[in-house]
Structures are given as C-alpha cells and as structure tokens.
Design a protein around this nucleic acid. Structure first.
Lengths: 356, 356
DNA sequence: ACTTACATTGTAAGCACTTTCAGAGACGGT
DNA sequence: ACCGTCTCTGAAAGTGCTTACAATGTAAGT
C-alpha cells in the first residue's frame, strides 16, 4: 500500500528498541517491560504507524480482518431494485450488516466480497479475499464451489448454509425445519389442513432441500399427505413459481388445501395465479411463504410466513469465525438459529390491519 | 493464509525454471518463450497454485483488489429496514453492487468494508482495508475523516462525494444541478409554474447546497421567482420537513405553486402535511422530490423526482480507481454523472397506472 | 568465424513483519 | 561472591513474491 508510510523499523528507531520488541508490543505478547511498552506506543502514535497487513500476514500473524463472500448478481441489477424481486439482495445485505456490526464490536474489520459463483478464472476473488483475512464466511450459494472447498480446507471458514456441514470449518444455519414444522403444525391444528402442496426452490440450494425435507417429515408427522403432483419445482423466483403453478392448474384442477412455498416471492406469484384462476386465497386455498420479506405484510392477503434472523446470522457467523481462530470453537461445529412463524392472512387466519 | 498451499518455488521446480520466470509468467511480462510459458502454466494448473496476495503486495506488486469504505450504522439496524427511512442504506448497497459488478468485469475483486465514521481506534478498518487493496473508494460520509485523508494522501483513492474535490485522488459526483434544472424547466414549461418554493437539506451537506444553488439559478433562468419565505430548511428527514412546512403554513397561507424538495423523504412529508391542511397535491399545489427512492412510485400521488445513477456511481468509481492505478486518469480528476428527471403525478402530470 | 544486439533466464536483494533462539541483566538463595 | 532462575531484549531466519542486474544463449551482420 501506501508509499512512504512508517515501518516497524522506523518505530524501533524512534523508540530505541529492536523491531522484535515493537512486534511484541504490537501483538501485546507478555514479557515487555511497562516503560519499554510505553516508549514503543509513543513512537507508534508519533509516526502514525500502522502495521502492514501484507507483511504481517506473510509472516503468519493475524490480519485482524475477516472476509464474507456472497454471490455476485450476474446481471446488472438496477439501481433501485423492485421490492418484490430483490428479497435475496436484502437478505444478504442484512447478513452483511450484522457481520460488519459484530466484527466492529470485536475489533475486527469485515471485508465483504461478491464472487461470481460460476466463475472459474484463476484470479478468483475468493482467493484474493482469503489471503487478506484471517477467516472467511461463505454464504449459501458460495459454499457449493470447488474453490470454496479448497479454501475452506486451508483456512478457518464458516458456512452459512441450509444443510450439510463443513468438515473443515463451522456451519451456521437457520432452523428451516423448525420453522416449517411450526408452520405445518399451525396449518394442521388451526386450519385442519391435511392435503399439502409444496413449491420448492433451486434444487442445489441447501436451504431449498432443507425446507423440502422439513415439509415432508412435518406433513407425515401431522398425519397429512403430500402428493407428488402437488410438489412443484421453482427456483425461488416469482416468475418461475407462477409458471409452475400455471402448469399445475392446466393438468388437474383438484388442488391441495395449501401450497407451502419455499420463499415469499414464490408465494406471491402463487397467490396471484391462483386468484386469477378463481381460486381465492385464503377462502378456497391457502398459501404460505418463507423469509418474511418487507412486502409480506403489505399485500392482500397478508402473507403467513417464517422469519429468518438474518442480521443475527451475520453476528453469529463472525462470532464463530473468531471462535475458530481462537481455538474456542471446534472445527465442525454447527449452530442453528431459530426461525419464527409469522401468522397472517394467507393461511386463513383473520387478517389484522397493519399499523399504518 | 492457507497452510500448505503451493508456492512459487514448487511451481518453479515442477516447471524446471527459476521462480523469477514463474513470476514473469504470472504477471505476463513479455520476454518469456512460448514453450516455457506453457510449461509454467501447466505446472500452475497441476499444483492448483495461486499466488499469495500477501507476498505479492509486500513486494510491491498489485493486489488485484480494490476497496470500498462506507459508513457503518452505529445502531444495530433491523433486518428489514423500514421502507421510507432507509433510502440511504439502499443507496449505498446499490453503489456497492455497481462497484462489485464492474470490478468483477475488469478482473478485480471489490472488498466492501463498513467503517465506524466517528471511530478513532488505531486498528481502524480503513487501514486494514487500504493495506489489502490497490486503490480505495470512499463514500460521502467517510470522506470527512482524518484517517481517510491520510490514506487518500498515500494511495489512490476516489471520493464519492458531493463535496469539493480531492487533491489526492479522483472525485465522482452526481449532477445535482442538471437534475434540478431539468425539473425546474419541466415545471415552468409544462405546468406554467412561476412561483417556486424549496425545502432544503442539511446546510453543511454538499449535495444540499448544490441542489439549492441549482434551484436558485434555474428559477432565475426560467423567469420564475423564489421568495425567501418559501425557502424552508430541512435536514433530509421526513419529520423535520413536516415540521418546516407546518411552520410555514402557520405564518402565511399564500403558498407558492410548487415545493421543490431536496430529497424524496422530505417530499413525502410535505405532501402529507399539505394534504392534511387542505392543499391537495397536485390539484392545489405541486411537490417534487429528489433520489427516486423505491416508494416514490408507489404512493399517491406518485412522486415526480430525479433519479441518481447509484449503480453507475459504483461502476464509475471502479473505473476511475483503476484508471488512477494505470496512470490513465490524472490525480484530481472529477467526473459528474447525469441525473434523470422522473415525471410522475405530484407535479401535475397525468398519473400512469403502474404496470402491475 | 567473430562481433554485436537482443531475447531469454537465473541470481539475489529487498518488501515489513513474526518468531525462535540465545544472550544479557536482575534477583534471591546459598 | 557465585550460581540458578527469571524476565526482558536483540539477532537472525524465515514468509512468498517482484524486479534490478547479471549471465547465458541465439540469431543476424560483417
């Protein structure tokens, strides 16, 4: 970096000690006499000295920074995202905000870096990032990347992932199954639902599969059924979900009691298509979402869904990386954050007026 | 980073060349025979070698990354920000997305780092960031930071700011005056407005003053007037704008034809207060905003405003940093991005139905 | 065949730190 | 006064890369 900034040698000279001593003060190792330490600190302040992260990391020390890699939107996203379609962006942003906040609290810096998930170029941002930080946080879709695996094997990493776990680092996930289970129980207990349908997300997304699995087991648990023709495949997008439900309607009009959707965007599409085809929600059929995006409480019918603690996810991830770094968290640790059922109108519950 | 990853020595050994040659291939400097180059590339691929950014940057080479520093929200922001109040968050996110996208296009990585703007601790994230990247982008509020100044003096930096220009790097700003001018002309030409009013932002905000100055000169240009009692002082917040307009209403009810507001949030407040006091917008009086926040097109009346190209701001910033790095952009350069008038209902134009 | 210029490659000196190892005081016990 | 034991400090060896400089090889010109 910086041309002409002070080095450890300059500090050593001013403080009349060796660079080794300066280094000790910097890493506040024990065994430096108090007045020596003070002298060094004074010199540091005087010279506005800041240790070079590059050199520090080359020689094996800590960088004091942790990285967070999230998927880069391939297309050139518009400046002000439409509110419905950009829930995933908001979700990621919330995680980043949480992570930044917690890192800052703990005296670390948080570098967030968007990585092109398909990319295979050699100067991969993931590598750049990993060599600039002490530990790394990988969000859902980034995890399934060969490069990511290699990196995780080599440095402390925590995966923010819906399923599976990392043999090489820690894993934090949101309690998809608990949320789904609460949702299904609510549907069964309060609304007497028995015949379930499901609109899934991208098959290779761990969150998507976790939610699907949870639906399967919860439905079994409450003694309901989930017929194969009522399991639709989406990709988390509103458009794809609309297409899927339209397709479903063409084939057979005897519908399940409810369509549980793997996220809110898809639920919005499903509601719209159903209504356009005369299946009023929630009078004729129920629909639920997942995520609790901002619009979920604003549309008609308000959407029954499950909230994820995205900010807390970021906080927890930072805590775990640092724990890993300090050896206080064991490799392979898994932490699961609670989700909360948010009951609104689309499951047939009476609709509250929104506060404003 | 990484324990046990291949080094340049390993590659050199496999390819039967010296490390210098490997380095030349890596930085594709000329003067390496074709078959030697191939041999090295093969070795690199075989060993999954990735050069250590730390070592590379230590020895003066490029890191291949650029940094972006933005202000950290001091309070623990909630996961899903309220839609009206968090325009600034969305704005920053859009810039980051633009910068990430462009950096990726150009083969760079973009590290975004939130910095506590008041913070004065020594392990300042700004330093960490700056030593991990080749150049740095500083957003508005980060610029006015002593540390930031010191860093800008020492490494290539571009400032995203309405404020003056950086003597040490480049500056990119949005064309406040062009946007205001187009807006004022529209009001004068299409709606015959002559008697203007203005609700300003924080007096010490460069954007606020730029917008005010632009209003003054544009109004003069179209032969309109801007009476002192119709120039209200806000602080960019909805609440403060409501207070200001209420105050104005108490004193004198002969209002101007329009209130041009320095941002959308204030416009929302002004519209609300005016309507509550019987001055219907746009029938009795017109109101315009600035920024085009997401709600602007969703409320009634839809808000006539000016769009800032936030995504493009990020793109331009990355281009400029890299230009600075490559010596193709001169230090002290200023680039001004165009703004676009968005005509909607609150200026009296017919309200289009939104597409859905 | 013998310069000469030039293309290619190797050698080695940094770059700014951390850390091991060993040496130098200090201090109490004998 | 001497020895063992601490505590503190310095010298020096990495850490992985870039690059100036030197050395070698190669082809063209005489």
């Amino acid at each position: 970096m910086a041309k002409g900034s002070a080095t450890i040698y300059d500090v050593a000279e001013v403080a009349c000690v060796s660079i080794a001593t300066v280094s000790r003060v910097l890493n506040d190792s024990a065994n430096v006499r108090a007045d020596t330490r003070d002298r060094v600190h004074a010199a540091i302040k005087q010279l506005h000295f800041v240790p070079s992260t590059a050199a520090r990391s080359l020689s094996g020390g800590r960088r004091g920074a942790i990285g967070l890699a999230y998927p880069l939107d391939e297309e050139r996203t518009v400046a002000t995202p439409s509110r419905e379609d950009d829930a995933s962006v908001l979700y990621t942003d919330a995680i980043i905000r949480g992570a930044s906040w917690q890192a800052s609290q703990l005296g670390y810096s948080l570098f967030a870096c968007a990585v092109r998930i398909g990319g295979n170029n050699d100067a991969h941002p993931l590598h750049q990032l990993s060599s600039a930080v002490d530990g790394i946080i990988l969000t859902d879709r980034v995890v399934n990347n060969v490069k990511a695996m290699r990196i995780a094997k080599r440095m402390h990493a925590v995966h923010l992932s819906g399923s599976g776990s990392s043999r090489f680092g820690g894993t934090i996930r949101v309690d998809n199954s608990g949320g789904i289970s609460a949702l299904v129980r609510h549907l069964a207990d309060v609304h007497g639902t028995r015949n379930f349908g499901f609109v899934g997300g991208i098959p290779d997304s761990p969150d998507a599969t976790a939610r699907f699995d949870a639906v399967v087991s919860s439905v079994t648990e409450v003694g309901g059924r989930l017929d194969p023709e009522n399991v639709l495949v989406g990709d988390f997008s509103l458009a794809r979900a609309e297409a899927a439900i339209e397709e479903r309607l063409r084939h057979d009009t005897s519908l399940p009691d409810v369509f549980v959707c793997a996220n809110d965007q898809m639920a919005l599409g499903v509601v719209r298509v159903l209504r356009d085809n005369g299946h009023h929600v929630p009078d004729k059929i129920l629909v639920t979402g997942f995520d609790d995006i901002p619009v979920a409480g604003q549309i008609y019918p308000t959407l029954t869904t499950v909230t994820q603690p995205s900010f807390e996810l970021g906080v927890a991830a930072v805590n775990m990386v640092i724990g890993l770094l300090d050896g206080e968290v064991a490799v392979g640790a898994i932490e699961i954050l609670p989700t909360t059922l948010v009951v609104r109108g689309s499951c047939g519950c009476p609709i509250e007026r929104s506060p404003r």
